[in-house]
């Protein structure tokens, strides 16, 4: 049904657009501030009024964090990328197999395992940090990137979302493959997986962002500077004795930029990953 657009509707729509856009601007303004501050000398950042567009942009700040002797930018990017790539690959491997078992296989104990997963989902993972700390020390995984990667591989949300998707694939499709002599592994890799691309993409994006922005786990498990991730890099500049807001902001820009680029290129999947994980069953 179509509602006729009346004149006052058009006017009120324009007013609403302007208001929403102005408020929306407040949400990106901090990013502009961040970029401006990252291009100034530290003393100028707290001068009044703030220079939103620096007259003499100081690109040397970026060179400084790039060339830093203790925490070179590339090392931190490398660590973060390593963690993100292996976490994501691992989550996909673990979740797709488990989801297929839950969605398409009949076996004893399915209900129990499934409800165990649900129960644990409610317990915040932070409670396990102390035992994990000791466990990883014992296994000599403490202060290696794997200490951050391994616990993240079990993602209940990813398993559930994949399972939900697999359940929508009709059993008849599987059965005809069975008749042709295909096993479960072949059905999964050759029939199911090609169908799951959109779901996988949403999950990858969701897990990429969580993983890239993670702070708590690297903070606890990665004390050496050579293993610093981008989040710890920001903290490094932030906690320097010499005030260096400009470098902190330059590092922040470097940490946010990859996520923003991804966001603007794959908006659709971002929104999808939110709506699908937010839907309550």
């Amino acid at each position: 049904m179509k509602i006729k657009v009346r004149k006052y509707d058009l006017a009120s729509k324009t007013v609403a657009t302007v208001i929403i856009a102005l408020i929306g601007l407040m949400f990106v303004l901090p990013l502009f501030w961040m970029i401006s501050a990252s291009l100034q000398i530290n003393g100028d950042i707290y001068k009044y009024p703030f220079q939103w567009i620096p007259t003499l942009p100081r690109w040397e700040n970026y060179a400084e964090i790039w060339n830093s002797g203790e925490v070179p930018l590339l090392t931190m990017y490398g660590n973060s990328i390593f963690i993100v790539v292996f976490t994501n690959l691992g989550i996909m491997f673990v979740s797709i197999l488990a989801a297929y078992a839950f969605a398409k296989l009949q076996f004893k104990g399915k209900g129990i395992v499934f409800s165990m997963f649900i129960c644990v989902m409610m317990i915040p993972s932070q409670v396990t940090v102390v035992p994990r700390f000791l466990l990883f020390k014992d296994l000599s995984l403490y202060n290696t990137l794997w200490a951050v990667i391994l616990p993240a591989l079990f993602s209940v949300t990813s398993i559930f979302l994949m399972r939900q998707f697999f359940m929508t694939v009709p059993d008849s499709l599987l059965e005809s493959a069975f008749l042709d002599g295909a096993g479960h592994f072949r059905i999964l890799t050759q029939i199911m997986l090609p169908l799951t691309k959109p779901t996988v993409a949403s999950l990858l994006i969701m897990n990429f962002v969580t993983c890239w922005n993670d702070y708590f786990n690297p903070l606890v498990f990665l004390p050496s500077k050579k293993y610093y991730t981008v989040s710890l890099g920001i903290q490094y500049y932030y906690t320097q004795e010499v005030p260096s807001t400009n470098l902190t902001m330059a590092m922040s820009v470097c940490a946010i930029l990859p996520v923003l680029i991804l966001f603007f290129t794959c908006q659709k999947f971002f929104i999808e990953s939110i709506t699908s994980s937010g839907v309550k069953g």
Binding site: F93, V94, S95, L97, A98, Y100, A101, L105, Q106, F107, K108, K110, V113, M116, F117, V120, I123, S125, V127, T128, V130, P131, R132, L135, L150, P151, L153, F154, I159, G183, H184, F185
Partner: peptide
């Protein structure tokens, strides 16, 4: 099916038991 199911669940279960249930 039962065997396949547990094989498929194994990676998830191992991480779940070692890195989540045991620490909890």
């Amino acid at each position: 099916d039962t065997l396949t199911a547990w094989l498929f669940l194994a990676p998830a279960l191992i991480i779940f038991l070692v890195l989540i249930v045991y620490p909890i």
